[in-house]
Design a protein around this nucleic acid. Sequence first.
DNA 1: TCATTCATGTAAGTGGTTACATGATTCA
DNA 2: TGAATCATGTAACCACTTACATGAATGA
Lengths: 178, 178
Amino acid sequence: MARVAQTEVAVLAALGVQPMTGYAVREAIRDQLGHFWSESFGQIYPTLTALAERGLIEHPDPASPAWALTQPGRERMLDLLRTEIPATPPRDPLMLRLFFGAALGPEECAALVRDARERARSQLAAFGAIRQVMDAESEYAEHHPYWFITLSAGEHRARAAIAWADETLAILDGMPAD
Amino acid sequence: MARVAQTEVAVLAALGVQPMTGYAVREAIRDQLGHFWSESFGQIYPTLTALAERGLIEHPDPASPAWALTQPGRERMLDLLRTEIPATPPRDPLMLRLFFGAALGPEECAALVRDARERARSQLAAFGAIRQVMDAESEYAEHHPYWFITLSAGEHRARAAIAWADETLAILDGMPAD
DNA sequence: TCATTCATGTAAGTGGTTACATGATTCA
DNA sequence: TGAATCATGTAACCACTTACATGAATGA
């Protein structure tokens, strides 16, 4: 318990890049971080209010709706980024299904695996596209190395998923149908 | 909305292997499926009650507390295993942190990556151990091929995580400290 | 002027965890 | 006899999603 709300981490970190409205935070998370993270409005706005009450963020310019980190907010953000990686219990719906694959039989399992492979392939393609866009732009240059690191993680995972799917489909293909 | 509770899938599938008490369901999920799935008592017992009310499971032997699938229950299980893979929004706390890694700097990011590599290594070792145990036993032989498939997925992922971590640490090592 | 985007918020519900409580059974 | 395990359950809470509502600003 006392598990730290991950929305707090995401919102503080986003505001750490530059001051933003809640709307812009959500856009940034969806567009830039969408493959690895997600937030909904219903979570962002209450979090912003709570952070403001705790003095971690503020409206530096009263004429603008944008939020910015206060100094305590920046320290809190750094603490969260550094250490608190929550150990979320694993819940992989594909693995759940394949583990009980005997009930389905090899052919239906193969269909699940092919779907997963297709998802991994389109992810890989999406990552390639992002890589090109990022190579062509120079804004936020200091962030680029880190963005490439996450991109690379996504690519490694997707390639691993594809390789596993290929092997698995070969195995399932060799199994007698029910 | 109308997202199917995944606990229902896990419980039905477990009872599909053999009749069990709620306690045994949890033990089986934790011990056999712990790397890919988790359930808590607080979720299992209400789910069992609800499934019984819907006629999907029953106590076939009134003298035993074990639950078993009814025929409609078996059909429901097959439907769920076949198709309903929920698209859970991604929430990867490590990627969240690395994406905003510029705030932390290369050294602290490297610490996060080394931790992740360590977790992947011990997972890989755990999978190897499970593989050996499974090779040595012959119970539930019909399930073995499917268990190997999930095991193999875990190994592919862990190896990908390790390779990515090695590459990433080399990159971070070459970056100037703040 | 009218659609779109920007912007903020709330209410209801969901799926799940944690902690606690109880009691039976097993076995050293 | 007393600890450990088996077994069931519930109450409180949590993070989050979905759907809905509102209104200002922008621009074709």
